[in-house]
Design a protein around this nucleic acid. Structure first.
Lengths: 146, 146
DNA sequence: GTTTATGCAAAACATTTGCATAGTC
DNA sequence: GACTATGCAAATGTTTTGCATAAAC
């Protein structure tokens, strides 16, 4: 599982070091979105600087995507494939991928309506995931990513 | 022009102080998006803390909307009406409002496809505005919000 | 006169960087 | 052995906070 990610790094000519291995394994293990701080807590042996450097490296490699939370702070998750968007569950922290979002049509309409040329976009959707919709009535929120 | 904004603050029981007036006027004067820092530079007489406090207050009042730049840093602009999105020109900093974006249909589809309940969303579109599309071939980028 | 807002300076955060050391290839 | 990555600690940049003062209602 983590191997695929590590292979990609290898293919990019990056060195396979202990810290990188440990960070990638931590990410794969918890199939969830994470903040830089959470990742530092998950792998305390690795220094802050390396965590930030590695996150940046993974984002640049396209292996991790950066999203933003409601308050604007950055959140990351392993990127699964191609261009897509995310729905962040506000209760449990789950991240749902959205592939067929129909945004391309939307962007075309924007170009037509405004005359602007679309260079890129970012869409964040804040949701309650199905499990949390079901659970929301019974138990209190358990939002805890750490 | 600035009056409408000030009236809204007044209606919310907030005091009409010199600094607030000055900040709101600065915002209205430059009909453009701004960062906290730019606003501080525009009204140097007002202290940092007050600038941040006032921005927050305006965002909470719905008078200003917070968006994010490509790098994730926050950008603000006077909000014109209702729910809408923004297209940020990457060359000149212009902000185009997008009202009829068709995103509601998209969100409904997301709910159907994933079973999640959509609580909210944020869409940022990064563009070249029409003027910049025209100018891009001739002159070099002049991105300068300050 | 009471309550709220301001300014300043300091604190709190999050992220980045310089540089010597250690690890990979 | 050459080059890259790491760790630490310090620097950076931005936003927040405490508290005494000043302004608004």
């Amino acid at each position: 599982m983590a191997t695929a990610v590590l292979d990609t790094l290898d293919a990019q000519g990056l060195r396979m070091t202990g810290p990188r291995r440990a960070l990638v394994e931590a990410l794969v293990e918890r199939q969830e979105a994470f903040t830089a701080e959470e990742l530092m807590q998950a792998v305390p042996a690795v220094g802050r600087a390396t965590v930030f450097r590695t996150i940046k490296l993974l984002v640049d490699s396209g292996l991790v995507c950066r999203m933003s939370q409601v308050d604007g702070r950055p959140l990351y998750s392993l990127s699964h494939q191609g261009h897509h968007h995310h729905a962040l569950c506000q209760r449990c922290g789950a991240v749902l991928d959205i592939y067929r979002c129909g945004i391309d049509t939307m962007l075309e309409n924007i170009e037509l309506a405004t005359g602007a040329k679309v260079l890129g976009h970012r869409l964040e959707v804040f949701v309650l995931c199905p499990a949390c919709v079901a659970a929301a009535d019974e138990s209190p929120p358990a939002k805890q990513l750490a």
